[in-house]
Design a binder for these strands. Structure first.
Lengths: 413, 413
DNA sequence: AACGCTTAGATCACGGTGTGAATTTACCCT
DNA sequence: AGGGTAAATTCACACCGTGATCTAAGCGTT
């Protein structure tokens, strides 16, 4: 409402700290000399800012490079151990908690199965909260990291996360039977987690998309869409370098784009959704309708069987046409530089479908925006959900110029 | 690439000038006293910034208000005459040039028909350039305004405008036969326009969307989609208060969203596009196929006849379903607070279709994001293209804190 | 008419910022 | 050991926003 927070001169400094920190984080070790042009700061400011960051322990020197004749440049990098990140993946059957250093190297991991048996496939949010809290303490003990060094905790959950309300993030997860679960408030309740620990909750598919943007096939793009094809279909839209959220954080529900008015019924209740044609669940259902059968107990194995079956050519071609049309919608509406096909089913189908999908997308999309876009396969498996979740606090850390948690808290309260 | 331009302390001032100017522009006359909390600036800075803006002639006093007992507050407002804006609408048959003051009051207008007769319906870009230049000088003479006070010229054209290239905006207009016309470079050629005049070229539908956001049904929304249904179908997506452009400024091509894979052929070459069902041209074509006929020579009259004909109920219901599904796609993908149905055909069909369209959208969209959205009719006619075009330089003017043109130019060169 | 009261707006010392030239540092080569 | 060279630091300068203090401009009462 009040616009950017840059009002006083001190905010300038914070901004410049953030610029230097981010540049150093993403573009490897750099000398102060190189940093100048790259950040559009004068040499004096670079020295000043860097000295401050080094004093705070956020930056460290990383060797030096001869510079023919003169004083060698000392390289700087973000100190990986100066902070820690926690990524949590709340899946449909288990909760995974992972501890990373700032460089996102894994330091410890805990997997905990969810107690099932709730009626109607639902599961209790309180169980999830407990598992997260227990996993956090365990992971900290395993890696011998003190809680104070944690920059923040990122949590990926299955379902729409609405953070627009007053009491923190609220989760609507149709598949797990959560309806407006105030997960953030529950986690912040006394006794669950260390108090004042910054929490970041987002849709698991979106955290996976973030990981793909930071370290996978989306790297370097400013406008991209990461599509996630699993049992269902989702997407993570990156607009101008930041995830596009919409007014209640539920933008990018690509799976329920209408591709055939009055078509197949989708599990969302509508008809003709993309997900009703290319989601793994729907694809298997369509195979069954066409007389196919499989032996694997899980969808992943079944889908592999579908791919191996020689009689599914037409089904797959049809799927490629729908997927291509869905991608064409993304191209026309978002005009991205890159579209990444990911998710476990997307990666499984990818090698077989990517070329017909590209052809279909070319046929359905407008020429001009399609020419600006590349359609690629994702590079990261679903394991990356925790990594993506951890990028949430990491992004904040970089944006705020590595503000210490204490400072944020005291400033905000 | 190098992030925000706020590096030095002077940029702080520019930023604060912009904040004050924008607040005053949108929220009417305000006193310095009220301005403080509203802009999060201290009283000292307000005094300082306001004094500077008054000295520059951008702000003026506008009466005063008693404040029970004490010194009355003097109200401030943006001086309407301290700058002028030009909005140009390049239509398919004529070029309209309009001159506004800063408050967007019309001061003069020129309409010039395009010389037709080009083979294949194309028309020469050079003609358009000449008409714009001639219109500009004429409009300035009529209103007795000196060229130096023009803040900038906004131009709405039919077609995709790609401003990502090195030589300025390039226009791809399929309907008018323009293929990569370097309109900006042509306008900047010596002798055409006053040199160094800031030009802003954008798709005409998008400028209309901007007008609807600033002064019409979109007012106050941060995330909105203005749909424009005319002969064809387009949309203007507003994300976080700014128009979403995509990587080559062609985002929001909603008309070619696929609603029926393998469906009706669209004039874009693909099949099953939204435009192939609900655009006025397609709608009339479908009526003809169903045995309908009309007498009006133009689409607008014909569409009115279609609406009056009692036998078109089913056709219109079907149209509403497609339009609703298309709107559901917007809801699912963009999660806006508001969707505005505009464009001449949209406004014509609106009263009849809006309710069934809302029902269809509710059926096809996901519950949660749909609950956040209102679907409304637009309030502005197609006349507003010029106003919307003029908001392009106006937005820049406000963003830069009313930087004088000379300063921008000298700073940029 | 004079005085006090109240509130709006201006002024100013202060701490803070980035700039860019001058200076210092650190290493190589002769 | 001394000169050359390039990196990094230092520092005077011009600015900025803050917030307390001061001045301006009305009103109500005496």
């Amino acid at each position: 409402m009040a616009g950017p927070r840059r009002r006083t001169v001190r905010d300038l400094r914070r901004n410049n700290r953030a610029t230097v920190l981010s540049k150093l984080y993403f573009d490897g070790p750099l000398s102060r000399q190189e940093l100048g042009p790259l950040t559009a700061l004068s040499s004096g400011s670079i020295s000043n800012v860097v000295a401050e960051l080094v004093a705070d322990g956020l930056l460290e020197e990383a060797g030096s490079v001869d510079s023919d004749g003169g004083r060698p440049r000392t390289l700087l990098r973000v100190a990986p151990g100066s902070g820690h990140l926690v990524g949590v993946d709340v899946g449909e059957t288990r909760v995974r908690v992972e501890l990373f250093d700032l460089a996102l190297s894994e330091l410890a991991r805990v997997d905990a199965p969810l107690p099932d048996g709730r009626p109607g496939g639902k599961y209790d949010a309180q169980d999830v909260v407990r598992l997260i809290a227990a996993g956090l303490t365990r992971v900290l003990r395993e890696a011998d990291v003190e809680p104070g060094s944690i920059v923040g905790v990122g949590i990926g959950v299955p379902g729409i996360v609405d953070a627009s309300g007053p009491s923190g993030a609220v989760v609507h997860g149709q598949t797990i039977g959560w309806d407006a679960v105030p997960l953030e408030a529950m986690l912040r309740a006394p006794g669950e987690l260390p108090p004042e620990l910054p929490l970041f909750i987002d849709n698991g598919a979106k955290t996976l998309g973030r990981a793909e943007m930071w370290f996978g096939a989306g790297r370097g793009a400013r406008n991209a869409v990461i599509t996630l094809i699993g049992s269902g279909v989702g997407a993570c839209v990156i607009a101008d370098g930041v995830p596009y959220q919409g007014s209640s954080s539920s933008a990018g529900e690509w799976g329920h784009t209408v591709l055939r008015v009055g078509g197949r019924e989708c599990r969302c209740g509508a008809r003709g959704c993309l997900e009703a044609y290319v989601g793994a669940e729907a694809l298997l259902e369509r195979w069954r309708e066409a007389g196919g059968s499989w032996t694997s107990p899980d969808e992943e194995g079944a889908l592999a069987e579908l791919l191996d079956d020689p009689s599914t050519g037409q089904l797959l071609d049809e799927t490629a046409e729908f997927l291509g049309a869905g991608i064409a919608d993304l191209v026309n509406l978002f005009n991205p530089e890159r579209i990444v096909v990911g998710g476990w089913a997307g990666l499984l189908l990818g090698p077989r479908l990517i070329d017909p999908v590209r052809r279909a997308a070319a046929a359905y999309a407008l020429r001009h925006p399609f020419a600006q876009t590349t359609v690629e396969l994702g590079r990261l498996g679903t394991d990356a959900v925790t990594v993506g979740a951890a990028t949430l606090p990491l992004a904040r850390f970089l944006e705020t110029g590595g503000a210490r948690r204490e400072r944020i808290v005291s400033g905000a309260s």
